[in-house]
């Protein structure tokens, strides 16, 4: 083949240009497809979601009688009107006690393999009873004990409304630790993010994001290093990182797995509906997204055991504000919630 002929050279150039443009498109397409919503909400085989299970879980979720004081429900801290969190730096539990970690949103927990800030629960079912029984949180007993004449299971069994609802949702299984956890999990799996401007843009609506938001997205994936951990549809790697907060008292994930890198490491939270879930971080250290960006811009406050992903970013003021605009484009319009009527007999 005579590669010296001018036509061939021209042909090669065209081919090269074509290849480059094809590579360009495919890189763009594959790069962004991981941000698309998964086609289904993940759910375990032994607890498929049904309308009856979801409805029962919803009643339990909003029922303050699930707590020892009969005054705190799951929704007290996971308030649907406050991004399924409580708007507080750290949670307030039984007896008005201020707890040491912030209430994580339960939005999109269906997509998370591990639950809680330290990931100690391997499923929603395993997480559900934790706060109910925790002395600091809802301080409930499941069964009667030395200090209580009735446990939660007795209390629920005393109400026909609940007996019927459990029987319809989990025929023949009764009211047990397991069925309470399963029903709560079924309801929680329905709490998923709605389409935000970013999702509309990903799906092709080029006007859905402002120029500033688009610049913010480029920074998010590039210079600002955010996507290293806040990756994929739910904007989390489901991983654990010490991000250099000033908080020497909480060992975080290290309490669960004794590996050095996990001292002071916490689970990467979702960024979905982030505008609705201030304050931020596991200890509620920051009130605004601007403060969060500044934390990462300076490369964290405490350098002790800090993740190697965290480094000084040298962002300009306009870059910082672009990032905040982008983060806000991840917030959708949450679906309205109807408060359930709770059984009184």
């Amino acid at each position: 083949m005579d590669i010296k002929s001018p036509f061939n050279k021209f042909g090669q150039k065209v081919l090269l240009a074509l290849c480059l443009s094809l590579i360009g498109t495919s890189v763009l397409a594959t790069d962004l497809s991981h941000y698309l919503r998964p086609s289904e909400i993940p759910q375990p085989d032994n607890n498929r979601m049904t309308p009856e299970r979801i409805e029962l879980g919803k009643m339990l979720f909003f029922d303050p009688r699930l707590s020892g004081s009969n005054w705190i429900s799951c929704a007290t801290c996971h308030n649907p009107g406050l991004g399924w969190s409580d708007g507080l730096p750290t949670a307030i539990g039984h007896g008005q006690k201020i707890l040491r970690r912030s209430t994580p949103t339960i939005l999109n927990t269906a997509y998370q393999p591990l639950q809680l800030w330290d990931g100690r629960a391997r499923s929603l079912e395993k997480q559900a009873l934790g706060p109910i029984e925790d002395e600091g949180e809802m301080a409930q007993r499941l069964h009667k004990s030395e200090d209580r004449s009735h446990g939660l299971i007795d209390e629920l069994n005393a109400l026909k409304g609940y007996r019927d609802a459990f029987e319809t949702a989990y025929p023949g299984e009764g009211i047990t630790k397991k069925t309470i956890a399963k029903a709560l999990s079924s309801f929680e799996r329905t709490i998923v993010s709605t389409d935000a401007p970013f999702d509309r843009w990903i799906k092709g609506d080029k006007k859905a994001m402002s120029k500033s938001a688009l610049r913010g997205f480029t920074l998010f994936e590039g210079k600002a290093n955010c996507a290293k951990c806040h990756s994929n549809f739910n904007f989390t790697d489901n991983g654990f990182h010490n991000i250099g907060l000033e908080d020497a008292t909480d060992a975080g994930r290290y309490a669960i797995r004794k590996v050095k890198i996990l001292i002071g490491a916490f689970k990467t939270p979702t960024l979905r509906d982030i505008a609705l879930t201030a304050p931020y971080m596991h200890n509620g250290a920051y009130t605004t997204l601007e403060e969060v960006i500044e934390h990462y811009n300076v490369g964290g406050i405490s350098k002790e055991n800090i993740s190697p992903n965290i480094k000084k970013l040298n962002l300009s003021n306009s870059e910082k504000s672009d990032l905040v605009v982008f983060l806000k484009s991840l917030t959708g319009k949450p679906s309205p919630i109807t408060y359930p009527m709770l059984p009184v007999e």
Binding site: D237, N238, G239, F240, R257, I261
Partner: peptide, 8 residues
């Protein structure tokens, strides 16, 4: 054997 950062 596990990854400490990504327990999956």
């Amino acid at each position: 054997v596990e990854c400490a950062i990504h327990p999956e």
